[in-house]
Nucleic acid binder design. Sequence first.
DNA 1: CGAAACGTTGACCGTTTTCAATTACAGTGG
DNA 2: CCACTGTAATTGAAAACGGTCAACGTTTCG
Lengths: 194, 194
Amino acid sequence: MSWLDLAPCAAHRRLQPGQALFRQGDAAAAVYLLEMGRISLTRCLTDGSTVALHTARPGETFAEAALFSPTYHCDAVAEVASRVAVLPKDRLLATLVADADAGLALARLLAGQVRSLRTRLELRNIRSAPERLLSWLALQAEGDPPVVQLDRPWLQIAQEIGLTPEAVYRATAALQRNGRIRRSSTMVELLPRT
Amino acid sequence: MSWLDLAPCAAHRRLQPGQALFRQGDAAAAVYLLEMGRISLTRCLTDGSTVALHTARPGETFAEAALFSPTYHCDAVAEVASRVAVLPKDRLLATLVADADAGLALARLLAGQVRSLRTRLELRNIRSAPERLLSWLALQAEGDPPVVQLDRPWLQIAQEIGLTPEAVYRATAALQRNGRIRRSSTMVELLPRT
DNA sequence: CGAAACGTTGACCGTTTTCAATTACAGTGG
DNA sequence: CCACTGTAATTGAAAACGGTCAACGTTTCG
């Protein structure tokens, strides 16, 4: 069960760089799933300045709160050429009230996101780059001995854990030096604490 | 509508420092609302080390995912003397399947948390302490001119935005010096960009 | 084969952390 | 009413750490 299951035949929409998907105050008509590109959600303040609320990346849904609000509370603007799946609010709501199970499924989805976000936030409390990376690896690891299969470039991992790529490279080097991890091109093995 | 509305007559439980509320693998029996104290959620790894997943603070619910899992996936241990409201899973689920509106209410609650967590995460991407603090203040501010009423010590604010208290003091001093904010003991006024 | 992205390392710099000391302040009990 | 205790607020100085910039090697893929 996922968002897409709730709205099987979703429409799609393409956006040019700089183009707005919706603006603060617009009638909340849909929830979106980003298929490709990058969309930034920002709130404009009374004094004209702007605050970044979130940057959506491929695979993410955003504006879920639109389900419960008559209008959007922030601007959504494509940073690069992007494509989104449009999940119409009215159809989603109809499904949800008609089918209690769908409501539960949605709650499960959101509860999972809450858990994941809390974890990412907690990771950021670790100041030391090597320790932060190590904790991230430990959470990703599976099997015995614990191993992480890297399915995307370090570049993106660095972004996710809030470090520059250089800091990540240095951290991996340091962890290897200290015998905490062992690496081959595409996988990382966690070694037991000495 | 809130978690408590879903389980009106919740039981309470007190915990000593170091006492566990539940352990990884225990049958998931309830969702919890922390009333006082501090409870840390950690995952134990195969090698015996441990990773912090979240630190619950008063007013927060945690273990929401228990609703959708037969067992808990982490340990919950009181860091200090704490009290929690116990929201039994079976009663919650019964309410949710019986009443589609309750499911929607839960989804709304969770969607709000997702939004808030994403915002906090995005804040952490701002490296500069003064800029991060300023963005946080801008998000908290209300009214015209925008004003923030501080309802808790800077100590806690520092913790929330991921800075040391000293860094926050220095940031407020710098922002005042640059004419971006004005402070009196319990409130902060945001000044328009010069 | 060449271009573009990713990976890696070095040096330097700036900011934040850390540690320490001081002040302000609220609550407590004598 | 006042010393007393603990917490919050503040400031200083030094060190550590990650960011930034730059150069270069490596891999991938058209």
